[in-house]
Each structure stands twice: as structure tokens, then as C-alpha cells.
Design a binder for these strands. Structure first.
Lengths: 149, 149
DNA sequence: TATATTCCCAGTAAGCCGATAGGAATTGTG
DNA sequence: CACAATTCCTATCGGCTTACTGGGAATATA
């Protein structure tokens, strides 16, 4: 029950990997070159190797994380990925949202009390409570909490 | 994300239906006949009709709920289902467990810190925390809470 | 016996999921 | 410029689950 797709687990493992090699870029660096040098990028292939994830599959996941603004990609040779901001500012709720969309136990979370189906929709509040419990936990944890665990 | 299967939603709706027509059987009744008369049974077909659920599909779900001891079935003509105990004693965690098994976000909830895969398993504690949050909510709610919502 | 109901088993159509394949676009390097 | 390494895009595939259906057997009432 409530099993998390492999895709999401992979995405989090990848972010954890990037977070562990994250170093803060000094605000007043000499040049962009050095700034990028200070914040090393990691290739998708390397993450896939050390995390034992299917390389091609991971590629798509990283593109998705980039689209959500959680990671930054450097294309071309010597390219790779890095975290877009410090791990302590990345809430796990953002990560889950990027990989799977909104937490929605049932379809009728946004509609009012009346179900499309015939019966009464008494359980709706129960599901909303579950959503709140999950969202509360996820937004209370950051990537930093995960790597410090 | 974390969408709940239709099967589980149906099962809960069925239990809600039974709970609303639940009346406590007096302990010292004159006979078993009257006791059964007091605790009316509802047929699977009627639940399916008023809740707009596929009748044949619901049958299987009710058998499952019976196997878990949450409902009692009376077979044969004039048969049907009733709750096995008062709604306030049925925790929603029991309901979910009956319909879907244990809450298990990831497969490695029971194993120790080492993952079968190559990489480190730092996120494990994070998932265990999520499991605890979900389990905590589910076991804090009873069927009574749902129908009183 | 007839009827209404639970119960069991098997099958099916559709969708999701993890993974793979091939290659285009981009960028540093000699 | 040519090459290599890397991100990025699109399409596809096999396996699994899910919701649902069908056909009946077992059971109980009248």
C-alpha cells in the first residue's frame, strides 16, 4: 500500500547523490569560470553507476528534475548536473511534486461535497485528512534532512 | 501521487454504507432470531446500487472484507452483510490493511540499512518517517469518524 | 422445488511502469 | 574544423496491475 514508484525513488537517490557533492558557490567569485569550477557537476552516467540505476532511464528523470528547477544542467562535454540551490532549501514536498505531481489520494479532492457517482461522498474528508498528513510530513523534510539521516 | 485504488475506495464506501445502518444488538436478547432481526443485513446488490459500484466487482471486495473479519455475511435467501462490530471500534488502518495490505512506501522497510542495490540507502529513514505519518493518521481515525464527518 | 443470496474461479481489455533504442543538439578540446 | 562527451528528445516494448465481467457452485429461506 502506498508504494512509491521506482522512478521517484531513483529521483530522490539522484538528488541525494548531488546533494552530497554540493558546495556553496561564493557570492563574490572572481569569474563565472571559477564559480562553476567550485560547484562541480556530476554526470548522469556516474550517478547511474554508483546508484545502480538504469542509465537511460535515469536520464529522463534528471531532465524532469531540471524542468522543475531542482537541478541545473551543463550541456556538452564536461557537462553534468548540480543542485540548483542548497539542500536545506529543497523541501521533499517539492521533490515529490516534481516527480509525481500533487498528492491526491482520490480524484475528488478539489470538488465540493457532491460526488459524480450516486452515493454519498462521506469519505472525502477522510481522504483530505490523509492528504494533509502526507503533505505535512513531506514539507517538513528537506533534502538536507535526508542526507543527514 | 499516492492515489488510492478504486477497490479501496469502494470497500470504504461499502463499509460506510453498512455503518450507517448499524444498530447495536442488545446483549441479552430473547433469541438469536431477534438479535439478527435487530441487526439488519444489507445485500451486496443494494450497496452496489445506491453507491453506483459495479455489482460483481463489489462482491469480491465484500468477500475480502469478510475474510478480514470486518463484516459478517449471512448466506442464502434474505442474506446480506453487516458490520462485525461497532463503527467506533473499526480503525481505518485495519480497513486499509484488509484491502491493500501493509503500508509500505518502499520495499526495504523491514531490512536493515544496507540496500540490495549498490548505492547508499540514505532515503530509507525518510520513507520510514512517511510510513509512520500515514500509519499514525490511519490508526487515529475510525469508521465512526468517517461517517460523522 | 424455486428463489435469492453469498462465494469461488477464470478470463479480458486497458493502462501504467520500468526499461531500452536511436539519434539530435550542444559544448569543450586538440 | 573534427572529434568526443554529454544532455536532451521521441518512440517503442514487455510485463504487470487493475477494474471489470461471466459462469456457475454452495447455501439458506419459503
Amino acid at each position: 500500500m502506498f508504494s512509491v514508484p521506482t522512478r521517484t525513488q531513483y529521483g530522490i537517490r539522484a538528488l541525494v547523490h548531488l546533494a552530497r557533492s554540493f558546495v556553496q558557490v561564493p557570492l563574490s567569485s572572481d569569474s563565472d569560470e571559477e564559480a562553476r569550477g567550485a560547484q562541480a557537476v556530476v554526470t548522469s552516467a556516474e550517478i547511474a553507476r554508483t546508484e545502480a540505476i538504469s542509465p537511460k532511464y535515469l536520464e529522463g528523470i534528471l531532465v524532469q528534475l531540471k524542468a522543475a528547477g531542482l537541478v541545473v544542467a551543463e550541456r556538452g562535454k564536461n557537462g553534468g548536473y548540480r543542485l540548483s540551490r542548497p539542500p536545506e532549501t529543497i523541501r521533499m514536498s517539492d521533490v515529490i511534486a516534481a516527480l509525481e505531481g500533487e498528492v491526491r489520494p482520490v480524484d475528488c479532492v478539489e470538488s465540493s461535497g457532491v460526488c459524480a457517482q450516486g452515493g454519498s461522498c462521506l469519505p472525502r474528508r477522510f481522504w483530505l485528512g490523509l492528504k494533509a498528513a502526507i503533505d505535512g510530513y513531506l514539507s517538513s523534510k528537506t533534502l538536507r534532512d535526508v542526507i543527514d539521516a
